[in-house]
Design a protein around this nucleic acid. Structure first.
Lengths: 125, 125
DNA sequence: TTATTATATAGTAATCATTCCTATTTGTCA
DNA sequence: TGACAAATAGGAATGATTACTATATAATAA
């Protein structure tokens, strides 16, 4: 894997956006300062970085894949009202998964859906 | 909601396919016996049935949404080798989620990824 | 440092999943 | 049975992503 300028810029953009951007989000942010970087390069680099574990890809809604610069173990909460995706701290599920020895588990994806604190408050107002 | 012939046929196909078919899978199965049913009708009915809770939609990979005739609470395991999607029995996570009172949770989506028993055996051979 | 070479890129076309659109059909209910 | 709103068929349009190809550029060795 070659260390290209584009690759650096793309990964920096994922970190800068922080809040689980789509490939399109990343492309749009980059395009301001680096209009020559093509969308295909953004997609390819996000894919490569996901496979190498530098970032995480999550599929939560709308079809568009989202990317997470936080590559440590954690889960996600999606607010059905404001659509915000909030990181949920990791907790261990080993004991819960003991009853399923047939599955050799490499990865656990947990997505909670509901209403976030802020949106609940809005309703109360 | 009107009870159309197409609707019945589509929901029967989801049950018949059982193993988490895509809209395309459903369409192809139906097309054999009912070539006049359009793909748009398949998509629309799968969407309506998902919203009414008759079936469940899951997004696991490939971009294509998959549908589950089993509309009871349960989780999924995706084999990274054979790509099979296997239902995992429901287990309660309430105690694990107590530390997150800010989230008003309506739905829990848990997807495990790894290698299924059958594929693990194949490697051993 | 320079030449070599294989990999990455830019730009665009193509593909795939899904939704939209509209004339026509068909459940439903009076 | 008739009226009408809702659903359908079929195809066009959209949005996300991948494929393609000529060109550019990291990496490596001389």
């Amino acid at each position: 894997m070659r260390n290209t300028v584009q690759r650096q810029i793309i990964l920096e953009a994922v970190s800068e956006l922080a809040i689980h951007p789509t490939a399109e989000d990343v492309y749009l942010l980059i395009a301001k300062k680096h209009p020559a970087i093509s969308k295909a390069t953004v997609y390819r680099n996000l894919d490569v970085a996901t496979k190498s574990g530098e970032i995480i890809s999550i599929g939560v809604f709308d079809g568009a894949t989202r990317f997470d610069h936080n590559n440590t173990k954690h889960y996600h909460f999606v607010c059905e009202s404001c659509k915000e995706i909030i990181d949920v701290p990791y907790f261990d599920l080993n004991e819960k998964l003991l009853p399923f020895p047939d599955f050799s588990i490499n990865k656990i994806e947990l997505t909670l859906r509901g209403i976030c604190k802020k949106c609940n408050k809005d309703v109360a107002d």
